[in-house]
Write a protein that binds this DNA or RNA. Structure first.
Length: 491
RNA sequence: CGGGGUAUAGCGCAGUCCGGUUAGCGCACCUGGUUUGGGACCAGGGGGUCGUAGGUUCGAAUCCUACUACCCCGACCA
């Protein structure tokens, strides 16, 4: 495995591929980086999914499931939307295969052409709004608060494992509201849910803000986002929440009668996070020893490894460990006792470090004698002996401490890599040589943003929502600006 | 779609320039023994249409042609 991941970007790719494959997380399939999440990796994702799902339900949302295929004609209804997605759609044109005449295998049967092509959903706004038309008649039907967990396909020109695969698993929330105000509140509420999840579950600090028009979702009036900083100094968009205005309601003719018996178009939002969060998790905390998982998301929070020379010793350790496991389980700690005889202790230590298990307990003859256990934490790699009595409470506290420590570490890293630039030279120097987030003034035009991107590959990651007003001059054009925005190179 | 690279055992690679025993190494796997507090050691063993198709040659992993797949860098994007 490549060393010095944190400081040497060129090693990143090798490190990353080694990591995800060896850690049994995922592997690239032949189809444009389609993501296959193996069992261990999936169990991490499943915990994330469950936590998010609970948060959606707490905020009043219900789950539903809509079709995979969307008739092509649906896409032409919202102009910006089709513009945004047309270039990356997988299209179903035929419905049958046949044996090749030359006997070399199978081929698409040219006689089985579809009347109207079907698009594999790149996102579900169109099919959902087509459905909502039938579900919404009265203000009494609103708000409609629905979430869908689904896989979608965007045929990207270039894929990147976890961060941009052709097929990915995500959730997309789609809500309909009677008023503009209520829809905006929903949009903001959900970006806050995402930020809450990122910080409190993933231990990943995020910036909140809105996107510049260039980066806005196709069909949205306003796009809110959370952005995280990865260990190599690049930004990663971790979640988005869109205020869609009445664009989709008008495109799909979704109207309702309000309490004054007046026909109105509904106001909409949509919001989503994807398996990209797995990439974010890996890239936020991992080190050269492998994954580092925040305890709240770790499928296994504590692993116990016995150290023994004889069967009798193992038997003794088994008996000693039994009540400890019971105590830990009582405190809802996910614990695994690995007393396989097929692997050696050293091998197990490395294996669980690789998988990012937050806490490891080792127990051997020496410990039995002293009534102690050896506790090692994954985040700092520190080892320490504790008395066996009350070890459950020690571990519980330690897990909470690790969760906090990971967040603080990531936050410190972000602070160290967040800078202000007041001149063009300063800006270029930071982007080229240091990376990270750069707060700088911008004249507010798309042309300037594009020019900065062309020159430096840096884009506006977000415009802070509650950013301080401050008079300044655009770093590129020198035109007046009232607020700094956040620039970075990104994935 | 442009530029670069790679393809040899489950994984990682050497061998290719300069054709010539039976294609090799590390990890992993299997058997036996000794081991077990940070990826053990010794001995033995199994596993290969050398990416595909054609060509040159007495002889091809090696030379030639075409094709395919994957990786990296760009444009595009969550």
């Amino acid at each position: 495995m490549a060393k010095n991941f944190v400081t040497r970007e060129e090693n990143y790719s090798q490190w990353y591929n080694d990591l995800v494959i060896k850690a049994n997380l995922a592997e690239n399939s032949a189809v444009r980086g389609c993501m296959v999440i193996k069992p261990y990796g999936y169990s991490i994702w499943e915990r994330m999914q469950r936590a998010l799902d609970d948060m959606f339900k707490e905020t009043g949302h219900e789950n539903a499931y809509f079709p995979l295929f969307i008739p092509k004609s649906f896409f032409s209804r919202e102009a910006d939307h089709v513009e945004g997605f047309a270039k990356e759609c997988a299209v179903v044109t035929h419905y049958r295969l046949r044996n090749s005449p030359d006997g070399s295998g199978v081929e698409v049967d040219p006689d089985a052409k579809l009347e109207e092509e079907l698009i594999v959903r790149p996102t579900s706004e169109t099919i959902i709004w087509d459905t909502y038309r039938n579900w919404i008649q009265s203000y009494r039907d609103l708000p409609l608060l629905i979430n869908q967990w689904a896989n979608v396909v965007r045929w990207e020109m270039r894929t990147r494992l976890f961060l941009r695969t052709a097929e990915f698993l995500w959730q997309e929330g789609h809500t309909a509201h009677a008023t503009e105000q209520e829809a905006i509140e929903e949009t903001e509420k959900m970006i806050n849910v995402y930020a809450d999840f990122a910080e409190n579950w993933m231990a990943m600090p995020v910036l909140k803000g809105i996107k510049s028009p260039n980066e806005r979702f196709a069909g949205a009036v306003e796009t809110y986002c959370i952005e995280a900083l990865m260990q190599d100094g690049k930004a990663l968009q971790a979640g988005t929440s869109h205020f869609l205005g009445q664009n989709f309601a008008k495109a799909f003719n979704v109207q309702f009668l309000n309490s004054e018996n007046v026909l109105e178009y509904v106001w909409a939002t949509s919001w989503g996070v994807s398996t990209r969060l797995m990439g974010a998790l890996v890239m936020s905390h991992s080190d050269d020893h492998g994954l580092v998982l925040p305890p709240k998301l770790a499928p296994v929070q504590v692993v116990i490894v016995p150290i023994y020379k004889s069967d009798e010793q193992l038997q003794l350790i088994n008996e000693t460990v039994e009540p400890i496991i019971a105590d830990l389980k009582k405190l809802d700690i996910r614990v695994k006792y690995d007393n396989r005889t097929t692997q050696k202790p050293g091998w197990k230590f490395n294996e669980y470090e690789f998988q990012g298990v937050p806490v490891r307990i080792a127990i051997g003859p020496r410990d039995i004698e002293n009534k102690t256990v050896e506790v090692a934490r994954r985040d700092t790699l520190e080892k320490k002996s504790y008395q066996m009595t009350c070890i459950d409470v020690v571990i519980k506290n330690l897990l909470e401490q690790i969760q906090k420590n990971l967040y603080i570490k990531a936050l410190d890293f972000r602070e160290e890599n967040t800078r202000k630039a007041d001149t063009w030279d300063e800006f270029v120097d930071i982007i080229e040589n240091k990376g990270g987030f750069v707060y700088a003034h911008w004249d507010g035009t798309s042309e300037t943003e594009q020019a900065i991107k062309d020159k430096t590959k840096a884009t506006i990651r977000l415009i802070p929502i509650e950013g301080k007003k401050e008079q300044g001059k655009c770093i590129l054009t020198g035109k007046p600006s009232e607020q700094r925005v956040v620039f970075a190179r990104s994935y």
